[in-house]
Design a protein around this nucleic acid. Sequence first.
DNA 1: TCGTATCATTTTGAATTCAAAATGCAATAT
DNA 2: ATATTGCATTTTGAATTCAAAATGATACGA
Lengths: 230, 230
Amino acid sequence: MSDSALAVIEEIRRPTLHEEVVDRIREMISQGELPVGTRVPEKELCAKFGISRTPLREALKVCANDGVITLLPNRGAWITQLTPEDVDELFPIMGSLEALSGELACCNATDADVAEVKALHYEMAMHYARGDQPSYNRVNQMIHQKIMEIAANPTLLQVYRSLAERIRRARYLANASINRWDAAMKEHEAILAALEARDGVLLAHLLKSHLLNKREAVKKVIREDDRSSL
Amino acid sequence: MSDSALAVIEEIRRPTLHEEVVDRIREMISQGELPVGTRVPEKELCAKFGISRTPLREALKVCANDGVITLLPNRGAWITQLTPEDVDELFPIMGSLEALSGELACCNATDADVAEVKALHYEMAMHYARGDQPSYNRVNQMIHQKIMEIAANPTLLQVYRSLAERIRRARYLANASINRWDAAMKEHEAILAALEARDGVLLAHLLKSHLLNKREAVKKVIREDDRSSL
DNA sequence: TCGTATCATTTTGAATTCAAAATGCAATAT
DNA sequence: ATATTGCATTTTGAATTCAAAATGATACGA
């Protein structure tokens, strides 16, 4: 092996400073602590995090690359305001990726995997029955994550997460009031059945539709958010 | 509109320094000027670009976020060495996205759009007939890009490009010797026909298979590259 | 009164500096 | 001869500094 070549790059990677900052910024945006459409207060964040501008700005470039932040040259970093058009572009992409996760999951799923999804499904049904939306949402997300995990494609997970990050805030707001809860639960029953039957084509289709059904709710939230900032 | 809020963030965006550097680094990797599996020579690049370490390191963080560079804390930035497993993860994802582009393209395509793809197809056929591989590859890529363009989903294009960047070098090498050229041309004829017929489901399927058929060629190149570095 | 020009202040972008970590090398011990 | 320790050098990560651009406030003129 040559002097400067590395056979396989794989190490224990504790997060570096700027990665840590990227996570914190994302978190703050999703919590509304950094409101969409406003300028990132560079100085304040440096003080808050106890760091200098260098790692903060590195993190901002990374976030900009992900579309969460928009950099205006010489005019600062702004928290990206999603437009309804952005949502219309994002959902079909995420739908395709979720569909893929379903297909792959059906190829790989062990009986134990299916049992775990089933357990989560019933846990979610419990929260649904009790009308506990926050818990429902949490378990709901776990189901989709579990399917992604069964798909066993880390790159897919990474790409999906990076897209999900862009609409995380809007999704969070949309989840505050679910307006087609009954329908969503029915869809989830079909999803579970398809996975149990290892019917990849069907599961792909169901996951895609399930996601696209949320599109209008997210767009609605964005439009309201737009109005509130005028 | 409130003091710090921006209705829509949209401006003439001339590339900033670090963005320019990101492009240059990607270009150098795809050309083999920065060989896969080696350490990024920070100092040399600064000298070459005539910049300080700050914008270079910003660019490296962005590239790392895209997976083109791997950062080892306190041990420098390395040009990511794709594994066959990475390729197996990437191709289904890119296949899904190409499929989506085909579906959307069929919804949107005007007659002029189809005519343009047809023209490109014949141009490619010409290069095929003459055995001119480099020109064939160039036009081939233009066709896929044109379909993406017709799909009219800038976000999709952006995501696809970011993934394509990871295997750009390997694809470039694989393209040096096409080993199923006849089959690929036949597939392209079917692709054109599906677009003309506005058969989105079929086009999606064809584009996906067409891409997946390249997977083994890319893996082969990577394995050879691995061996050469031992 | 409203618009424009001037200038001080703040913010941004990028170079420089500085401390900590890693690397390479020589001396020593086994 | 090989492995281990200690030390000088290099590289990395992050703070600081500095110049350029943008912002805001005030004075001036129409």
